[in-house]
Simulated scan of single mutants.
Amino acid sequence: MSGILDSVNQRTQLVGQNRLELLTFKLNRRQRYGINVFKVKEVLQCPKLTAMPNLHPLVKGIAHIRGQTISVIDMSLATGGRPIENTENCFVIISEFNRSVQGFLVSAVERIINMNWEDILPPPKGAGTGNYLTAVTEIDGELVEILDVEKILDEISPRHTEVSQTLRDEMIRDNPVTRRVLVADDSSVARKQVQRAIESIGCECILVKDGKEALTKLREMATEDSIYNQLDLVISDIEMPEMDGYTLTAAIRNDAKLKDLHVILHTSLSGVFNQAMVDRVGANAFIPKFNPDELGAAVKAAMPE
């Protein structure tokens, strides 16, 4: 376990290289799962959990960790499995998503694996819309499922996605022409959140599932007409299968037909390293998920006068 924690503390060096470190774990079953180490603050033996009235059914209990009160989510139950009953030998992955900290109760934590985003693939097409996968990969001949944590969290505590009426009125007043925005995000929940916010301020959305699909779409559009006649803005997640948002932004800046597109990186990642990477790859802005007014204001600022 100490080796895992040491690796967590050294994780930032991979940012911007289209690489990630994947922490693998198991629930009640043999299947292996993964979570990007960038979102992991700490891994610890499951502490004493306190049951409280009116907790969401997926929340196993509340833990007091380093001066913070944290909800601990039963990841087996959250993904459609049977609940984890005996927590004595289990672990909690403390994670930060979308400006909030929560714990994920898992049966076992295995190891951290250094990988390339190109080896992280979208879920199989037959997986359906009700699954909790955002990506899959293969490690040691076994399929590892990467969970759509944003979908799980949205079921427990749905996020407000409406832009304020004041900002909607300003956007429609200042931009009477419908603007087009390309949104790249591997989480179906995150795509819908962004779409609702952006469409509420009078923009039209083109939705894609990862950086590779976004770049392909942009280049296809640029062969038909100037991209600037078709699109006003790109909003991209950072963590995505096959091509991350940093690599996508760098590719846009290096393409003569796309290089002047306005790019906003919109991600559940947080930390001081982000602004340095935003500057390095040439993104115009970085916004942590998910505040609809912040996103709407960034879109408004990106639009030409």
Rank of each mutant, 00 (worst) to 15 (best):
M1N: 10
S2Y: 12
G3L: 15
Q10S: 11
R11Q: 10
R11A: 04
T12E: 15
Q13G: 09
R19F: 08
N36K: 02
K39G: 10
L49C: 03
M52Y: 12
P53I: 01
P53T: 01
V59W: 12
K60V: 04
H64I: 11
I65G: 01
I73R: 08
D74E: 11
P83W: 10
E85M: 08
N86K: 10
T87G: 00
N89Q: 13
I94S: 04
S95E: 13
R99N: 12
Q102P: 02
N114G: 01
N114V: 08
I120F: 10
I120E: 04
G126K: 06
N131R: 05
T137S: 00
V144R: 00
E162K: 09
S164Q: 10
Q165E: 13
T166M: 14
D169R: 14
R173C: 06
T178I: 09
L182C: 03
L182T: 02
S187C: 04
A190C: 03
K192G: 01
Q195H: 11
A197P: 02
E204Y: 10
K209F: 13
T216C: 11
L218A: 04
D225L: 06
Q230W: 13
Q230Y: 12
D237A: 02
D244P: 07
Y246T: 01
D255K: 09
K259Q: 13
V263S: 03
I264D: 02
T267C: 02
N274G: 00
Q275D: 14
V278G: 07
R280Y: 04
N291I: 04
V299T: 01
V299F: 08
P304L: 15
